[in-house]
């Protein structure tokens, strides 16, 4: 499996570390307990396309958001995590 790092081009997935789904959004500090619980523990776990956070640890070191299909392992895109956050309306 190769991941298209926006800085380095297609690289082996062995160069990357995995964090998990990009969907859970960190709640504000005084959000209710349920919101924090869902952020820490609850996952959509889709069978199909998923946006997920990888870090190019043995390359440029950047956090990226990869769009990948969990059923086929097909990778359809990757953007820098900072750009993804802007696109998703985060600061």
């Amino acid at each position: 499996m190769r991941l298209p790092c926006p800085h380095c081009g297609p690289r082996s997935s062995a160069e990357f570390t995995y964090l998990g789904a990009a969907a859970p959004k960190r709640p504000v500090d005084d959000a209710p307990l349920e919101a924090w619980h869902d952020f820490v523990f609850i996952r959509d776990n889709p069978r199909g396309p998923i946006d997920e956070l990888w870090r190019h640890r043995l390359g440029c070191g950047a956090w990226i958001v990869v769009t990948r299909d969990t059923l086929t392992h097909d990778v359809t895109g990757a953007v820098l995590a900072s750009r993804y956050a802007k696109r998703e309306g985060e600061s």
């Binding site: 082996s12 062995a14 969990t70």
Partner: peptide
């Protein structure tokens, strides 16, 4: 393998 998957097959880095 370390990433979310429903594929019932893995990749080569983990084999190594």
């Amino acid at each position: 393998d370390g990433y979310n998957s429903y594929a019932q097959r893995g990749n080569l880095p983990l084999v190594e």
